[in-house]
Design a protein around this nucleic acid. Structure first.
Length: 426
RNA sequence: GUGGCUAUGGUGUAAUGGUUAGCACUAGAGCUUGUGGAGCUUUCAGUCAGGGUUCGAAUCCCUGUAGCCACC
Protein backbone atom coordinates (compact mmCIF):
# COMPACT_ATOMS: atom_id res chain seq x y z
CA UNK A 1 0.00 0.00 0.00
CA UNK A 2 0.96 3.62 -0.23
CA UNK A 3 0.79 6.60 2.07
CA UNK A 4 0.53 10.12 0.72
CA UNK A 5 1.47 13.18 2.70
CA UNK A 6 1.28 16.79 1.57
CA UNK A 7 4.12 18.99 2.70
CA UNK A 8 3.33 22.39 1.23
CA UNK A 9 0.83 23.94 -1.14
CA UNK A 10 1.20 26.77 -3.61
CA UNK A 11 -0.49 29.87 -2.29
CA UNK A 12 -3.45 30.80 -4.42
CA UNK A 13 -3.45 27.66 -6.57
CA UNK A 14 -4.16 23.97 -6.29
CA UNK A 15 -0.53 22.85 -6.61
CA UNK A 16 1.21 21.02 -3.79
CA UNK A 17 4.44 19.22 -2.84
CA UNK A 18 4.36 15.95 -0.97
CA UNK A 19 5.58 12.39 -0.69
CA UNK A 20 4.17 9.04 -1.76
CA UNK A 21 5.51 6.23 0.40
CA UNK A 22 5.44 2.87 -1.37
CA UNK A 23 6.72 -0.58 -0.38
CA UNK A 24 9.71 0.12 -2.62
CA UNK A 25 10.56 3.60 -1.45
CA UNK A 26 9.45 7.20 -1.58
CA UNK A 27 8.35 9.34 -4.48
CA UNK A 28 8.76 13.02 -3.80
CA UNK A 29 5.99 14.86 -5.55
CA UNK A 30 5.47 16.46 -7.89
CA UNK A 31 7.50 13.91 -9.83
CA UNK A 32 8.07 12.93 -13.43
CA UNK A 33 7.89 9.15 -13.88
CA UNK A 34 9.80 7.77 -16.91
CA UNK A 35 7.93 5.24 -19.01
CA UNK A 36 9.29 1.72 -19.35
CA UNK A 37 6.50 0.13 -21.33
CA UNK A 38 7.98 -3.32 -21.77
CA UNK A 39 9.86 -3.43 -18.47
CA UNK A 40 12.66 -1.26 -19.80
CA UNK A 41 13.08 2.44 -20.28
CA UNK A 42 14.12 2.21 -23.89
CA UNK A 43 17.87 2.38 -24.43
CA UNK A 44 18.67 2.87 -20.73
CA UNK A 45 19.77 0.62 -17.89
CA UNK A 46 17.86 0.92 -14.61
CA UNK A 47 21.02 2.33 -13.03
CA UNK A 48 21.07 5.10 -15.61
CA UNK A 49 17.39 5.85 -15.01
CA UNK A 50 17.96 6.03 -11.26
CA UNK A 51 21.11 8.10 -11.48
CA UNK A 52 19.48 10.75 -13.62
CA UNK A 53 17.11 11.30 -10.72
CA UNK A 54 13.94 9.29 -11.35
CA UNK A 55 12.13 7.95 -8.27
CA UNK A 56 9.84 5.51 -10.11
CA UNK A 57 9.01 4.06 -13.52
CA UNK A 58 5.74 3.18 -15.26
CA UNK A 59 5.26 0.01 -17.32
CA UNK A 60 2.37 -1.15 -19.43
CA UNK A 61 -0.05 -3.97 -18.76
CA UNK A 62 -1.07 -4.49 -22.38
CA UNK A 63 2.48 -4.92 -23.62
CA UNK A 64 3.73 -7.05 -20.71
CA UNK A 65 0.67 -9.29 -20.92
CA UNK A 66 1.41 -9.99 -24.58
CA UNK A 67 5.14 -10.31 -24.01
CA UNK A 68 6.60 -12.00 -22.01
CA UNK A 69 3.25 -12.84 -20.37
CA UNK A 70 2.11 -12.77 -16.80
CA UNK A 71 3.46 -16.22 -15.91
CA UNK A 72 7.02 -15.08 -16.50
CA UNK A 73 6.45 -11.89 -14.53
CA UNK A 74 5.03 -13.87 -11.62
CA UNK A 75 7.87 -16.37 -11.60
CA UNK A 76 10.38 -13.54 -11.79
CA UNK A 77 8.97 -12.14 -8.57
CA UNK A 78 7.23 -9.18 -10.15
CA UNK A 79 8.10 -6.33 -12.46
CA UNK A 80 10.72 -4.70 -10.23
CA UNK A 81 12.75 -7.84 -9.65
CA UNK A 82 12.40 -8.92 -13.27
CA UNK A 83 13.94 -5.71 -14.60
CA UNK A 84 16.30 -5.06 -11.68
CA UNK A 85 14.51 -1.87 -10.60
CA UNK A 86 14.24 -1.90 -6.83
CA UNK A 87 12.33 1.38 -6.61
CA UNK A 88 8.62 2.19 -6.97
CA UNK A 89 6.73 1.02 -10.03
CA UNK A 90 3.44 1.83 -11.77
CA UNK A 91 1.54 -0.09 -14.42
CA UNK A 92 -0.96 1.42 -16.79
CA UNK A 93 -4.13 -0.65 -17.18
CA UNK A 94 -4.17 -1.27 -20.91
CA UNK A 95 -7.29 0.82 -21.44
CA UNK A 96 -5.47 3.45 -23.39
CA UNK A 97 -4.00 0.85 -25.74
CA UNK A 98 -7.49 -0.17 -26.72
CA UNK A 99 -7.69 3.32 -28.18
CA UNK A 100 -4.14 3.99 -29.37
CA UNK A 101 -3.67 0.54 -30.88
CA UNK A 102 -7.32 0.15 -31.87
CA UNK A 103 -9.45 2.80 -33.57
CA UNK A 104 -6.64 5.36 -33.56
CA UNK A 105 -4.08 2.96 -35.01
CA UNK A 106 -2.51 4.28 -38.19
CA UNK A 107 -4.92 7.19 -38.39
CA UNK A 108 -2.70 9.96 -37.15
CA UNK A 109 -5.09 10.41 -34.28
CA UNK A 110 -3.68 11.52 -31.02
CA UNK A 111 -5.25 12.27 -27.73
CA UNK A 112 -4.23 15.90 -27.90
CA UNK A 113 -6.72 17.99 -29.85
CA UNK A 114 -5.19 20.68 -31.96
CA UNK A 115 -8.12 21.45 -34.26
CA UNK A 116 -11.25 23.40 -33.62
CA UNK A 117 -13.77 21.76 -31.37
CA UNK A 118 -16.22 19.48 -33.11
CA UNK A 119 -19.84 20.44 -33.03
CA UNK A 120 -22.03 18.40 -30.78
CA UNK A 121 -23.76 16.89 -33.76
CA UNK A 122 -20.51 15.90 -35.34
CA UNK A 123 -20.42 12.31 -36.39
CA UNK A 124 -16.78 11.82 -37.10
CA UNK A 125 -15.39 9.46 -39.65
CA UNK A 126 -14.09 7.25 -36.92
CA UNK A 127 -15.63 3.87 -36.57
CA UNK A 128 -17.90 3.95 -33.58
CA UNK A 129 -17.23 1.75 -30.63
CA UNK A 130 -20.16 -0.55 -31.05
CA UNK A 131 -18.63 -2.90 -33.53
CA UNK A 132 -18.64 -1.15 -36.89
CA UNK A 133 -14.88 -0.98 -36.75
CA UNK A 134 -14.72 -4.60 -37.77
CA UNK A 135 -16.46 -3.87 -41.02
CA UNK A 136 -14.18 -0.99 -41.86
CA UNK A 137 -11.30 -2.23 -43.95
CA UNK A 138 -9.16 0.60 -42.63
CA UNK A 139 -9.14 -0.99 -39.24
CA UNK A 140 -7.87 -4.44 -40.12
CA UNK A 141 -4.39 -3.65 -38.83
CA UNK A 142 -5.11 -3.73 -35.13
CA UNK A 143 -8.81 -3.49 -34.51
CA UNK A 144 -10.29 -3.37 -31.07
CA UNK A 145 -13.92 -4.02 -30.34
CA UNK A 146 -15.26 -2.32 -27.26
CA UNK A 147 -18.49 -3.26 -25.53
CA UNK A 148 -19.91 -2.67 -22.09
CA UNK A 149 -18.14 -5.68 -20.67
CA UNK A 150 -14.65 -5.09 -22.01
CA UNK A 151 -12.38 -4.88 -25.05
CA UNK A 152 -11.51 -7.55 -27.58
CA UNK A 153 -8.35 -6.78 -29.49
CA UNK A 154 -5.71 -8.32 -31.65
CA UNK A 155 -2.12 -8.55 -30.54
CA UNK A 156 0.19 -6.14 -32.35
CA UNK A 157 2.83 -8.84 -32.04
CA UNK A 158 1.22 -11.84 -33.71
CA UNK A 159 -2.37 -10.88 -34.52
CA UNK A 160 -3.86 -13.31 -32.00
CA UNK A 161 -7.15 -12.31 -30.37
CA UNK A 162 -7.35 -11.34 -26.70
CA UNK A 163 -9.91 -9.87 -24.37
CA UNK A 164 -9.50 -7.44 -21.48
CA UNK A 165 -12.22 -6.74 -18.99
CA UNK A 166 -11.86 -4.51 -15.94
CA UNK A 167 -11.47 -7.62 -13.79
CA UNK A 168 -8.91 -9.17 -16.11
CA UNK A 169 -6.82 -6.00 -16.22
CA UNK A 170 -6.68 -5.89 -12.42
CA UNK A 171 -5.75 -9.57 -12.22
CA UNK A 172 -2.95 -9.10 -14.70
CA UNK A 173 -1.70 -6.01 -12.93
CA UNK A 174 -1.61 -7.92 -9.64
CA UNK A 175 0.48 -10.56 -11.35
CA UNK A 176 2.84 -7.93 -12.68
CA UNK A 177 3.02 -6.57 -9.18
CA UNK A 178 3.61 -2.82 -9.45
CA UNK A 179 3.20 -0.59 -6.39
CA UNK A 180 0.61 1.57 -8.10
CA UNK A 181 -1.84 0.23 -10.68
CA UNK A 182 -4.62 1.86 -12.66
CA UNK A 183 -8.27 1.08 -13.28
CA UNK A 184 -9.28 -0.09 -16.73
CA UNK A 185 -10.85 2.84 -18.58
CA UNK A 186 -12.09 3.84 -22.00
CA UNK A 187 -10.22 6.57 -23.80
CA UNK A 188 -11.55 7.98 -27.07
CA UNK A 189 -10.42 10.56 -29.60
CA UNK A 190 -10.73 14.25 -28.76
CA UNK A 191 -12.53 14.54 -32.09
CA UNK A 192 -15.40 12.44 -30.80
CA UNK A 193 -18.70 14.12 -30.10
CA UNK A 194 -19.95 15.15 -26.69
CA UNK A 195 -22.39 12.26 -26.79
CA UNK A 196 -19.65 9.72 -27.27
CA UNK A 197 -17.45 11.34 -24.64
CA UNK A 198 -20.32 11.12 -22.21
CA UNK A 199 -20.82 7.45 -23.02
CA UNK A 200 -17.13 6.77 -22.50
CA UNK A 201 -17.23 8.51 -19.13
CA UNK A 202 -20.21 6.44 -18.01
CA UNK A 203 -18.59 3.23 -19.17
CA UNK A 204 -15.35 4.18 -17.41
CA UNK A 205 -17.28 4.76 -14.19
CA UNK A 206 -18.95 1.36 -14.33
CA UNK A 207 -15.62 -0.27 -15.08
CA UNK A 208 -14.06 1.62 -12.14
CA UNK A 209 -16.48 -0.04 -9.73
CA UNK A 210 -15.69 -3.44 -11.18
CA UNK A 211 -11.95 -2.78 -10.90
CA UNK A 212 -12.34 -1.84 -7.24
CA UNK A 213 -14.39 -4.92 -6.56
CA UNK A 214 -11.88 -7.29 -8.15
CA UNK A 215 -9.01 -5.46 -6.47
CA UNK A 216 -10.57 -6.02 -3.04
CA UNK A 217 -11.10 -9.70 -3.75
CA UNK A 218 -7.42 -10.12 -4.67
CA UNK A 219 -6.18 -8.16 -1.69
CA UNK A 220 -3.23 -9.54 0.21
CA UNK A 221 -0.78 -8.00 2.74
CA UNK A 222 1.35 -6.20 0.15
CA UNK A 223 -1.28 -5.42 -2.41
CA UNK A 224 -0.88 -2.64 -4.91
CA UNK A 225 -2.50 0.76 -4.62
CA UNK A 226 -5.27 1.22 -7.16
CA UNK A 227 -5.86 4.54 -8.88
CA UNK A 228 -9.20 5.36 -10.53
CA UNK A 229 -9.23 7.19 -13.85
CA UNK A 230 -11.13 10.36 -14.72
CA UNK A 231 -12.33 10.83 -18.29
CA UNK A 232 -14.51 13.47 -19.97
CA UNK A 233 -12.45 14.82 -22.85
CA UNK A 234 -12.51 18.58 -23.10
CA UNK A 235 -15.92 19.09 -21.62
CA UNK A 236 -16.07 20.77 -18.24
CA UNK A 237 -19.31 19.20 -17.07
CA UNK A 238 -18.13 15.71 -18.00
CA UNK A 239 -14.73 16.22 -16.40
CA UNK A 240 -16.23 17.52 -13.17
CA UNK A 241 -18.85 14.81 -13.04
CA UNK A 242 -16.23 12.15 -13.70
CA UNK A 243 -13.93 13.54 -11.01
CA UNK A 244 -16.78 13.68 -8.46
CA UNK A 245 -17.89 10.13 -9.24
CA UNK A 246 -14.44 8.55 -9.31
CA UNK A 247 -13.31 10.77 -6.42
CA UNK A 248 -16.11 9.40 -4.23
CA UNK A 249 -15.03 5.80 -4.81
CA UNK A 250 -12.53 4.09 -2.55
CA UNK A 251 -9.45 4.49 -4.71
CA UNK A 252 -5.96 5.08 -3.32
CA UNK A 253 -5.31 7.83 -5.81
CA UNK A 254 -6.41 9.05 -9.22
CA UNK A 255 -5.32 9.14 -12.80
CA UNK A 256 -6.44 11.89 -15.13
CA UNK A 257 -6.77 10.36 -18.57
CA UNK A 258 -8.13 10.96 -21.97
CA UNK A 259 -8.00 13.72 -24.46
CA UNK A 260 -7.39 17.42 -24.12
CA UNK A 261 -7.24 20.65 -26.02
CA UNK A 262 -3.59 21.49 -26.33
CA UNK A 263 -4.31 25.05 -25.32
CA UNK A 264 -6.26 23.97 -22.30
CA UNK A 265 -4.61 21.07 -20.54
CA UNK A 266 -4.10 23.14 -17.41
CA UNK A 267 -7.70 24.27 -17.34
CA UNK A 268 -9.12 20.78 -17.79
CA UNK A 269 -6.80 19.41 -15.14
CA UNK A 270 -7.89 22.23 -12.84
CA UNK A 271 -11.57 21.28 -13.18
CA UNK A 272 -10.74 17.72 -12.21
CA UNK A 273 -8.49 18.56 -9.27
CA UNK A 274 -11.06 20.95 -7.83
CA UNK A 275 -13.44 18.03 -7.54
CA UNK A 276 -11.02 15.38 -6.30
CA UNK A 277 -10.29 14.78 -2.61
CA UNK A 278 -7.13 16.63 -1.63
CA UNK A 279 -5.57 13.91 0.46
CA UNK A 280 -4.95 11.42 -2.33
CA UNK A 281 -2.31 11.58 -5.09
CA UNK A 282 -3.19 12.53 -8.64
CA UNK A 283 -1.40 11.26 -11.70
CA UNK A 284 -1.73 12.91 -15.11
CA UNK A 285 -1.52 10.09 -17.63
CA UNK A 286 0.74 10.45 -20.63
CA UNK A 287 1.60 14.13 -20.22
CA UNK A 288 3.82 15.75 -21.21
CA UNK A 289 5.84 18.53 -22.58
CA UNK A 290 7.66 20.93 -20.22
CA UNK A 291 4.89 23.51 -20.44
CA UNK A 292 2.29 20.84 -19.67
CA UNK A 293 4.16 19.78 -16.55
CA UNK A 294 4.21 23.29 -15.17
CA UNK A 295 0.52 23.80 -15.89
CA UNK A 296 -0.29 20.40 -14.42
CA UNK A 297 1.65 21.02 -11.21
CA UNK A 298 0.03 24.40 -10.76
CA UNK A 299 -3.37 22.82 -11.15
CA UNK A 300 -2.84 20.08 -8.59
CA UNK A 301 -1.11 17.16 -10.30
CA UNK A 302 1.37 15.12 -8.23
CA UNK A 303 2.88 12.70 -10.74
CA UNK A 304 3.30 12.53 -14.52
CA UNK A 305 4.44 9.98 -17.04
CA UNK A 306 5.13 10.54 -20.69
CA UNK A 307 6.87 8.81 -23.57
CA UNK A 308 7.79 12.10 -25.20
CA UNK A 309 11.26 12.60 -23.71
CA UNK A 310 12.51 9.16 -24.72
CA UNK A 311 10.61 8.98 -28.00
CA UNK A 312 11.80 12.33 -29.30
CA UNK A 313 15.28 11.45 -28.05
CA UNK A 314 15.34 8.38 -30.28
CA UNK A 315 14.38 10.59 -33.19
CA UNK A 316 17.04 13.21 -32.61
CA UNK A 317 15.31 15.90 -30.56
CA UNK A 318 16.55 17.26 -27.23
CA UNK A 319 14.90 19.58 -24.75
CA UNK A 320 16.56 22.90 -24.09
CA UNK A 321 15.51 25.75 -21.86
CA UNK A 322 13.11 28.09 -23.53
CA UNK A 323 14.61 31.32 -24.72
CA UNK A 324 13.19 34.39 -26.30
CA UNK A 325 9.72 34.21 -24.84
CA UNK A 326 8.87 37.15 -22.65
CA UNK A 327 5.29 36.14 -22.08
CA UNK A 328 4.44 35.06 -18.58
CA UNK A 329 1.01 34.01 -19.70
CA UNK A 330 2.00 30.37 -19.80
CA UNK A 331 -1.28 29.13 -21.15
CA UNK A 332 -0.66 31.16 -24.27
CA UNK A 333 3.06 30.64 -24.39
CA UNK A 334 4.15 29.57 -27.83
CA UNK A 335 0.84 27.97 -28.49
CA UNK A 336 -1.04 30.41 -30.66
CA UNK A 337 1.06 29.70 -33.72
CA UNK A 338 3.48 26.88 -33.00
CA UNK A 339 4.86 27.03 -36.53
CA UNK A 340 6.40 30.39 -35.73
CA UNK A 341 8.31 28.86 -32.84
CA UNK A 342 10.21 26.03 -34.47
CA UNK A 343 12.54 25.66 -31.51
CA UNK A 344 9.69 25.42 -29.05
CA UNK A 345 11.98 24.42 -26.23
CA UNK A 346 13.80 21.74 -28.14
CA UNK A 347 16.47 21.30 -30.76
CA UNK A 348 16.79 18.73 -33.53
CA UNK A 349 20.25 17.24 -33.34
CA UNK A 350 19.96 16.13 -36.96
CA UNK A 351 19.97 19.74 -38.12
CA UNK A 352 23.00 20.64 -40.22
CA UNK A 353 23.99 23.44 -37.87
CA UNK A 354 25.11 20.93 -35.23
CA UNK A 355 27.48 18.88 -37.38
CA UNK A 356 30.43 20.91 -36.14
CA UNK A 357 29.01 22.27 -32.92
CA UNK A 358 31.36 21.11 -30.18
CA UNK A 359 29.29 22.37 -27.27
CA UNK A 360 26.91 20.33 -25.08
CA UNK A 361 23.16 20.20 -25.73
CA UNK A 362 22.77 22.77 -23.01
CA UNK A 363 25.66 24.51 -21.33
CA UNK A 364 25.18 24.38 -17.59
CA UNK A 365 23.11 21.19 -17.74
CA UNK A 366 24.32 18.77 -15.08
CA UNK A 367 23.27 15.58 -16.86
CA UNK A 368 25.79 12.90 -17.78
CA UNK A 369 25.40 13.59 -21.48
CA UNK A 370 25.97 17.31 -21.28
CA UNK A 371 28.89 16.81 -18.91
CA UNK A 372 30.68 14.53 -21.35
CA UNK A 373 29.50 14.88 -24.96
CA UNK A 374 29.06 17.51 -27.64
CA UNK A 375 26.25 18.17 -30.09
CA UNK A 376 28.67 17.39 -32.93
CA UNK A 377 29.20 13.91 -31.51
CA UNK A 378 25.48 13.34 -31.01
CA UNK A 379 24.77 14.65 -34.52
CA UNK A 380 27.27 12.13 -35.85
CA UNK A 381 25.74 9.27 -33.85
CA UNK A 382 22.25 10.08 -35.14
CA UNK A 383 23.40 10.36 -38.74
CA UNK A 384 25.26 7.09 -38.42
CA UNK A 385 22.19 5.56 -36.77
CA UNK A 386 24.23 4.45 -33.80
CA UNK A 387 22.35 3.16 -30.74
CA UNK A 388 24.31 5.33 -28.35
CA UNK A 389 22.57 8.38 -29.83
CA UNK A 390 19.28 7.24 -28.31
CA UNK A 391 20.88 6.45 -24.97
CA UNK A 392 22.72 9.73 -24.53
CA UNK A 393 19.84 11.88 -25.72
CA UNK A 394 17.31 9.95 -23.59
CA UNK A 395 19.50 10.58 -20.55
CA UNK A 396 19.46 14.29 -21.26
CA UNK A 397 15.74 14.53 -21.97
CA UNK A 398 14.71 12.50 -18.94
CA UNK A 399 17.09 14.43 -16.74
CA UNK A 400 15.66 17.65 -18.13
CA UNK A 401 12.07 16.76 -17.24
CA UNK A 402 12.81 15.02 -13.94
CA UNK A 403 14.93 17.96 -12.91
CA UNK A 404 12.39 20.52 -14.10
CA UNK A 405 9.79 18.92 -11.86
CA UNK A 406 12.25 18.60 -8.98
CA UNK A 407 12.94 22.30 -9.26
CA UNK A 408 9.23 22.96 -9.32
CA UNK A 409 8.91 20.96 -6.12
CA UNK A 410 11.71 22.91 -4.51
CA UNK A 411 10.05 26.17 -5.50
CA UNK A 412 6.77 25.06 -3.93
CA UNK A 413 8.48 24.01 -0.72
CA UNK A 414 10.35 27.30 -0.55
CA UNK A 415 7.27 29.33 -1.40
CA UNK A 416 8.81 30.68 -4.60
CA UNK A 417 6.46 29.33 -7.24
CA UNK A 418 5.97 32.53 -9.19
CA UNK A 419 9.68 33.25 -9.27
CA UNK A 420 10.29 29.73 -10.49
CA UNK A 421 7.81 30.08 -13.32
CA UNK A 422 9.25 33.38 -14.43
CA UNK A 423 12.81 32.12 -14.30
CA UNK A 424 12.03 28.88 -16.10
CA UNK A 425 10.01 30.23 -18.95
CA UNK A 426 11.29 33.71 -19.43
C1' G B 1 46.61 2.75 -81.42
C1' U B 2 41.96 0.25 -83.60
C1' G B 3 36.96 -1.38 -82.88
C1' G B 4 32.59 -1.78 -79.85
C1' C B 5 29.49 -0.21 -75.80
C1' U B 6 27.89 3.50 -72.33
C1' A B 7 26.97 8.70 -70.57
C1' U B 8 19.90 11.33 -66.86
C1' G B 9 19.98 15.27 -59.54
C1' G B 10 25.17 13.68 -54.62
C1' U B 11 24.24 7.96 -55.56
C1' G B 12 21.38 4.06 -58.16
C1' U B 13 17.88 4.08 -61.86
C1' A B 14 12.93 5.12 -65.27
C1' A B 15 10.92 7.62 -69.55
C1' U B 16 7.27 4.61 -78.65
C1' G B 17 10.54 11.55 -81.14
C1' G B 18 5.26 14.79 -77.84
C1' U B 19 4.97 13.57 -69.51
C1' U B 20 5.49 19.39 -65.79
C1' A B 21 11.95 14.25 -67.20
C1' G B 22 9.35 9.66 -62.86
C1' C B 23 11.11 6.57 -58.61
C1' A B 24 14.38 5.15 -54.46
C1' C B 25 18.25 6.47 -51.30
C1' U B 26 21.02 10.70 -49.70
C1' A B 27 20.72 15.88 -48.31
C1' G B 28 17.64 20.38 -46.04
C1' A B 29 13.26 21.64 -42.75
C1' G B 30 9.01 20.32 -39.72
C1' C B 31 5.75 16.81 -36.88
C1' U B 32 5.91 13.03 -32.58
C1' U B 33 2.28 13.57 -25.19
C1' G B 34 -1.04 6.43 -20.45
C1' U B 35 5.90 4.03 -26.50
C1' G B 36 5.87 3.61 -32.57
C1' G B 37 14.18 2.18 -32.02
C1' A B 38 8.57 3.54 -36.39
C1' G B 39 6.26 6.63 -39.45
C1' C B 40 4.40 11.08 -41.81
C1' U B 41 4.63 16.00 -44.27
C1' U B 42 7.60 19.11 -47.06
C1' U B 43 11.92 21.27 -49.83
C1' C B 44 16.47 21.27 -52.78
C1' A B 45 18.69 18.77 -56.72
C1' G B 46 19.42 15.98 -63.31
C1' U B 47 19.37 14.84 -69.42
C1' C B 48 28.38 15.09 -70.29
C1' A B 49 29.93 19.44 -73.92
C1' G B 50 29.15 21.60 -78.81
C1' G B 51 26.75 21.29 -83.40
C1' G B 52 22.75 19.15 -86.62
C1' U B 53 17.79 16.75 -88.23
C1' U B 54 12.64 17.84 -86.70
C1' C B 55 6.72 21.62 -85.61
C1' G B 56 8.91 19.03 -81.37
C1' A B 57 15.14 15.56 -79.04
C1' A B 58 17.04 12.48 -72.74
C1' U B 59 15.57 9.70 -77.16
C1' C B 60 17.87 10.23 -84.15
C1' C B 61 22.83 12.02 -86.65
C1' C B 62 28.00 14.27 -86.30
C1' U B 63 32.24 15.95 -83.43
C1' G B 64 34.58 16.23 -78.81
C1' U B 65 35.29 14.43 -73.79
C1' A B 66 35.10 10.58 -70.09
C1' G B 67 34.46 5.50 -68.50
C1' C B 68 34.20 0.21 -69.54
C1' C B 69 35.24 -4.08 -72.75
C1' A B 70 37.84 -6.54 -76.76
C1' C B 71 41.99 -6.75 -80.12
C1' C B 72 47.30 -5.69 -81.66
Amino acid sequence: MIRFTIETSIKGSKGRAGTIDTPHGKIQTPAFIPVGTKATVKSLTPEQVKSLGADAILANTYHLYLQPGTEVLKKAGGLGKFMNWSHPTFTDSGGFQAFSLGPAFGRRLGKIGKEEKPSFSDTSSLPNNDGDAQENEESIMAPAKIDDDGVTFKSVIDGSTHRFTPERSIEIQHDIGADIIFAFDECISPQESYTRQKAAVERTHKWAERCLERHKELKHPKYSALFGIIQGGRYEDLRRESARTIGAMNFDGFGIGGSFDKEDIGTAVGWVCEELPENKPRHLLGIGEPIDLILGIENGVDTFDCVAPTRIARNGAAYVSQRGSTSLDLARWNLAEPAKHPANGRINLLNAQFISDFTPIESGCACYTCQNYTKAYLAHLFRAKEMLAATLTSIHNLYYLVNLVKNARKAIVEGKWNEFKEKTFK
